[in-house]
Amino acid sequence: MAHLIDGLAATLGKESIVTGLLFLGAVMAFAGFVSHRWTGGRLHASAIAIALGLMAALGAGLVTSGSRGMADVAGFGGLAILGGATLRDFAIVATASSSRFEELIVAGPRGMLALLCGVCGAFALGGMVAYGCGYRDPIDLATIGGGAATYIVGPVTGAALGAGSEVIALAVATGLVKSILVMLLTPTVARLIGLNRPAAAIVFGGLMGTTSGVVAGLAATDAKLVPYGALTSAFYTGLGCLLGPSLIIAVLRALLAHQ
């Protein structure tokens, strides 16, 4: 019996991608059950599954004090590959096979406007909150503002400008809070903000930017909208990394110099 348990533990550890698939299957099945039985299908199974994933990451992070959530738990390392950028991008692109090119062209200009507003708005709001919390250095404001864009834009901006490591960590945390809030809240507010058609999803992706938040939030709302949101959000981080250490820091320096 002891041999069987040891053998099982060794197998699960060696085949961690397969173990990860089993884990995901169990989470999806449980979420489906909860959605159907307890909410009568009102709360989408994918929204419950994503919330369960985040809770698992929180629990795992507290127990292992690692930075990769469930992937730091012995035997579940494969989840980092399954949920990593490569497979994520592969699957996002695949969802585009069912979307319509016409929708894209119609919403194109609005999507671009949303991107610009989204990136500049995130820097402005994040910078204002940081200013309100006592930060005065333009580099710190740009870095935290970048974090309010995405958890990539913040550290890239901070690193380019030479920000301190605790400010960079704060920017990463800001971006993570944003991504998690978007994942959790999108299905709830979708009706309220008219997020039920491709054009709105294109605008939403451009305004929010955080690809992980946008695609998970849309998947939990209506999977058909995912490719449209992903399309604009794909440009957001790049645009933020471009504007942060150039235009944004110049504007911030000019604003603070006048005081």
């Binding site: 299957g25 945390a173 971006g175």
Partner: peptide, 29 residues
Amino acid sequence: YIPIVVAMAATQNVVAALRGGWVAVLAGG
């Protein structure tokens, strides 16, 4: 796609997001 997104959610650094303190929660929110 959705299982992959669940895996992505399960491997996020949620603890760091919560530890970032009020500035992070406020700015992100």
